[in-house]
């Protein structure tokens, strides 16, 4: 199977700090592709183009309620519905690593691809008038100028709880594949067959059952830690008794 780079986002540890949002914005507004504009950032009705958003959902009803912080960016679908609808070929999926990109020099800003994305991952750049979306920091992950450890998307490096993993989901031994396999990773809106490459790891609750009598070590004959009074019995067993 061909390489498919993707993010795996662990909802169990995301604390909703928005560090991935700000680091994404910082990296991608500073690149050679041009700024990600903010309109009236300090004004009455601020707006801006972002590749990544952290949303918050409340699951359940008080008092049995849980807050889930939910980072959302382009999922780099393996069968991206936004690509075939593009009339100019500006929207494309890279053969070599599966990243879905927009060629900003070819995009005519018709917004059809945004209609064709069920996840709302694409946002129009209000100044350049072209469609933009998460690039998986394609201008960073292959940069030989950077030390090997920093060749990761900006959001992954910024996450203080390591809720974001980055790797090849088609390589069964990669960190992300192991996480998906062993922690129950899932895709968003599987009903549309888009086969998103990004996966989410669910909230996981670890519980151990402790009964009250287990709190006191009633079974220790010495009532303290130490060497057992005798070693394991080796010679006489019931079998030996009956077989004479």
């Amino acid at each position: 199977m061909s390489k498919q780079l993707a993010l795996v986002i662990d909802l169990n540890v995301c604390v909703g700090c928005h560090a991935c949002v700000t680091s994404c914005k910082e990296w991608n507004t500073s690149g050679s592709a041009g700024a990600l504009p903010d309109e009236r950032p300090y004004g009455k009705d601020p707006s801006g183009t972002f590749f990544n958003r952290v949303q918050t959902f409340e699951v359940g009803e008080f008092p049995n309620v849980e807050t889930v912080h939910f980072p959302k960016s382009c999922l780099h679908c393996e069968d991206p519905p936004c690509v075939p609808v593009c009339p100019t070929g500006a929207s494309y999926k890279r053969e070599e690593d599966g990243i879905v990109l927009v060629d900003y020099d070819k995009c005519i800003g018709c917004e059809y691809c945004s209609w064709a994305c069920p996840y709302g991952a694409r946002e129009i750049d209000t100044r350049q008038k072209v469609m933009k979306k998460c690039t998986l920091c394609v201008d960073r992950i292959y940069d030989p100028e950077l030390p090997e450890s920093e060749r990761k998307p900006a959001c992954v490096l910024a996450c203080p709880t390591s809720a974001r993993l980055f790797g090849d989901v088609n390589d069964p031994d990669s960190e992300v594949s192991v996480a998906i396999r062993e922690e129950g990773g899932y895709q968003l809106m599987p009903e549309w067959g888009t086969n998103p490459a990004n996966h989410y790891l669910p909230r996981r609750k670890q519980r151990i059952t402790i009964h009250e009598d287990e709190l006191i070590r009633a079974d220790s004959p010495l009532k303290k830690e130490g060497v057992h009074p005798h070693g394991p019995v080796e010679d006489v067993t019931l079998d030996d008794v009956t077989s004479w």
């Binding site: 801006g48 972002f50 952290v54 949303q55 918050t56 959902f57 895709q187």
Partner: peptide, 20 residues
Amino acid sequence: VGIKHRKITQRSMGHTGGSF
């Protein structure tokens, strides 16, 4: 969001101003 619970309410869309 991939959570199997009958009652899920959004509390924040991630930004207070409008977006595309």
